[in-house]
Design a binder for these strands. Structure first.
Length: 198
DNA sequence: AGAGCGATGGCCT
DNA sequence: GGCCATCGCTCTA
């Protein structure tokens, strides 16, 4: 697909898309497009894997109340929550549910769609399935940084566009956590080769 | 293909 | 001081 043309025909997902049950948003984001308008040009990927983090969920950063780190999760829905992890990586979330409720959807993998040479340069990797197949990988590939923490996902330069096709969803437990590990809160597109892990 | 592990720093107890 | 929503390298098969 000529991604720039396709994306230009749609508007970003509106605020009320995000202001809903977080599990529903996590599932509905599969197949949607994250778009970053950079100096280089449009960089975009289709969301193929997500995880829901709920306020009453021990794995959720917001489960023990608001801190300077997680305050964006409690703010208005439809904003980016970007956090620093393991001393060298960032992960990207979309804030969901109403103001005052600390919930979000972690984006775990994308299928590269637009700006692939930019992604390859960012990642210093060539193989398409190794550009966005993990939460920290896709942040690096898309040129997302901590400066995007708290930005509005309904407006450029970083926003999410609706899906073009319906998708088949597989539900599993989440990856890389100890607390809340048994909860079925990970979702991915069935048979998509760009997911981080089956 | 899969297990083990080091890198690296902010946050929380 | 220990934990952590990760990644990539190395070692073993």
């Amino acid at each position: 697909m000529n991604c720039a043309d396709k994306i230009a025909n749609t508007k970003p997902l509106p605020r009320d898309f995000y202001e809903r049950n977080t599990v529903e948003v996590a599932k509905d984001l599969l197949g949607c497009y994250i778009v970053h308008y950079t100096e280089y040009g449009i960089v975009a990927g289709m969301i193929v894997e997500t995880e829901a983090y709920l306020q009453n969920d021990p794995a959720c950063h917001a489960s023990r109340g608001m801190t300077t780190r997680n305050r964006v999760m409690f703010g208005p829905p439809g904003h980016a929550y970007v956090y620093f992890i393991y001393g060298m990586y960032y992960c990207f979330n979309a804030v969901t549910n109403s103001c005052g409720i600390g919930e979000a959807v972690l984006i775990r993998a994308l299928e590269p769609v637009c700006g692939i040479s930019f992604m390859q340069k960012q990642r210093n990797k060539q193989k398409l399935t190794n550009l966005c197949s993990g939460p920290a990988k896709l942040v690096q590939a898309m040129g997302i940084s901590k400066a995007h923490n708290g930005t509005d996902l309904t407006l450029p330069p970083l926003c999410i566009y609706p899906k073009h096709h319906s998708v088949n969803i597989v539900t599993t437990t989440r990856i890389g956590i100890k607390k809340g590990a048994e909860l079925p809160l990970r979702f991915y597109i069935k048979d998509n080769k760009f997911v981080s892990k089956i």
